[in-house]
Amino acid sequence: MQRSLNIDPGKCTGCRQCEMACSYEKEGAFNPSKSRIKVFTFDAEARFVPYTCTQCAEAWCMQACPVDAIKVNLATGAKEVHADLCVGCKVCTIACPFGTINYNASSGKVQKCDLCEGDPACAKACPTQAITYVDSNWTGLDKMRAWAAKTDTGSHVN
């Protein structure tokens, strides 16, 4: 089964365990500045929103790359940057409408979420299940369930 990261900002407390887990997985150090997932805090509204790549099926980044350095991992569906091919031109960062692929000045390459080969570190580290890794075909399941509960008018009792 192909899976997707499913983010529920309503459950996020803004703790950044996901950012540390991601940076450790990819860089070998706790370093949120190098994380592929980023939590945004909107202070005035008290909202905390984790954000990362959605792995578009027809990914803008992949199509824009002039050296074909971004390829699909057929097992996970992730669009992965092949560092050995990336020339650091950043065209993909311009092409991505969501800003989720970014240049890493230390490596001279771009970086983005690659779903950790099907075992994403951010989801494992999240203490509130704000980030889960679910069936790609059913990312709406929780919302559907919630609405189903609301729209059940109760023709049956108990």
């Binding site: 407390t13 803004g14 703790c15 950044r16 540390m20 008290a46 203490p127």
Partner: peptide
Amino acid sequence: VANQACFGCTIACGRVSM
């Protein structure tokens, strides 16, 4: 309006109010 975590905190006791 929310409970907020400090950095790295898996408790998240902070109160945020309006």
